[in-house]
Design a protein around this nucleic acid. Structure first.
Lengths: 257, 257
DNA sequence: CGGGCTTGGTTGTATATACAGGCTAGTGCA
DNA sequence: TGCACTAGCCTGTATATACAACCAAGCCCG
């Protein structure tokens, strides 16, 4: 039912994206090769090549010369959405990751949570409260709500072994993500679970993620201001990124005089 | 002097980017057409087409069928880096923007600033300290350092009329940007200039920007935690973005119980 | 003088073809 | 049995060619 007026390479792209979004093609699955698309879709190989190459640029697939084309796995897919897995981040730094699960339950959605998740009145949501630790030191308090029918087996998961965000990504590829970042003074409940004192601010990240075109999860991520920072480095495609700023300069948060 | 091993479309791209970065091609200037590249560079039109098409995707040029290819102007270029202008953001919300310039001077670079800007010992930098206000209320304290020879006329600018970041973008297209976001308790100097009390945390954004392949500016941006938030909404290309989260839900920063 | 048409330049797309290089699996030889 | 080599598949790139759509400028004709 693709529009007739669209270019054929665009139709090819949309067909493949549709298969990925619908779940027919899972992460790491093999995508039809250029020659298979030539035969099946009645296009030239250059047209199939353009479609797959653009999907590569957009982060949907990875290509390996001589092997084939594959749906990007979760780690690579996170690049598109810039949604990161805190456990991977910690292990990439060579530190040990651990988690404490404080809550894992089904509950009635409050009015605010219903609005964030676009859920109807009276619906239930799963609520997970987990502290993520780096070398045993709390670094994130995750207060997450998940739409019930998106992930029915939420209560059976062991969130000390897989983070909620990694688990959600595995259920279905994430389509959209929304972030809001604020600096706050945390309440007593947050302070106790993060092990910080009354004077320490928190970096609060509010995150909503979409799948199948609707919000499926909403999370409040509290980070101790003294132990956490968000980083980003933007460069045009094809450019070599420069070295990141050093820790010494990071410490320079104070205004002189 | 381009490397021989690179694909020819990539060499073409780098040649054109080089002309843009060097200033030979100014914004709105016409870029050689595909056929001109075919004759001048001895490539096929498909190869020239690919180079120009990818430059379009990367935001360097705009193409109009039947007319030609043109270097994108500054406003469009900033989209590539996702670097935002706070004055534009405020006016987009329908509020009035104003600025107070506290400092605008040349000074010796401290060791930390020299390292961030990769400057040699003994070099001077420009230092600008500006408070940005929304409807008269301070919303950002900008503490910025600029490499001297990148912008020699820094002391002649009126930063109540144009923000430093907008001014820098106008000198040369930005190639790279690095951000670090932290939650901090500000010192007295910051508190006084932002008009906040001792209990209020700040969202601190450290930003370095590159042009011509080197760092040209480093800024510390302090924002009152109660009046400012960073937002981001990521969706794959071609996807319709959903409605942003509502202010009501944003306010829900507290952990229940 | 003015309006419609033609012409040439430009981008956008599609195809057929060709060669290079990486990888796998299977064949065949020692 | 074990190793080397080869055939085949896949991606990556490059070229020549073709047609469609768009636009501007100029020409022609009324």
């Amino acid at each position: 039912m693709t529009a007739q007026g669209k270019p054929r390479y665009q139709q090819l792209k949309e067909m493949i994206i549709g298969r990925i979004m619908s779940g027919e093609l899972q992460p790491r699955d093999r995508v039809p090769s250029e020659n298979e698309l030539v035969n099946a879709m009645n296009v030239s190989r250059m047209t199939a090549n353009r479609a797959l190459r653009e999907l590569t640029d957009e982060g949907y697939v990875d290509r390996v010369a001589g092997i084939g084309t594959f749906v990007t796995d979760l780690k690579a897919a996170s690049h598109v959405l810039e949604v990161r897995n805190i456990a991977d981040e910690i292990e990439r730094r060579g530190h040990t990751y651990s988690a404490i699960v404080h809550k894992q339950e089904r509950q009635h959605a409050s009015a605010e949570i219903r609005e964030a998740l676009q859920a109807v009145a009276g619906s239930d949501v799963f609520h997970v409260l987990v502290v993520h630790q780096e070398n045993g030191v709390p670094i994130q308090l995750e207060d997450r709500y998940v739409v019930e029918d998106f992930a029915p087996d939420c209560l059976q998961q062991d969130f000390t072994k897989i983070t909620p965000s990694a688990w959600l990504s595995g259920i279905s590829p994430l389509q959209e993500a929304e972030h809001i970042v604020r600096a706050t003074m945390p309440g007593k409940a947050v302070r106790e679970r993060l092990g910080i004192d009354e004077q320490e601010p928190c970096l609060l990240v509010l995150r909503r993620t979409w799948a199948h075109g609707r919000p499926v999860s909403f999370a409040r991520l509290h980070h101790p201001g003294s132990r956490f920072e968000l980083t980003g480095h933007y460069a045009p495609p094809g450019t070599k990124k420069s070295n990141p700023i050093t820790a010494d300069v990071i410490e320079l948060g104070k205004l002189q005089q």
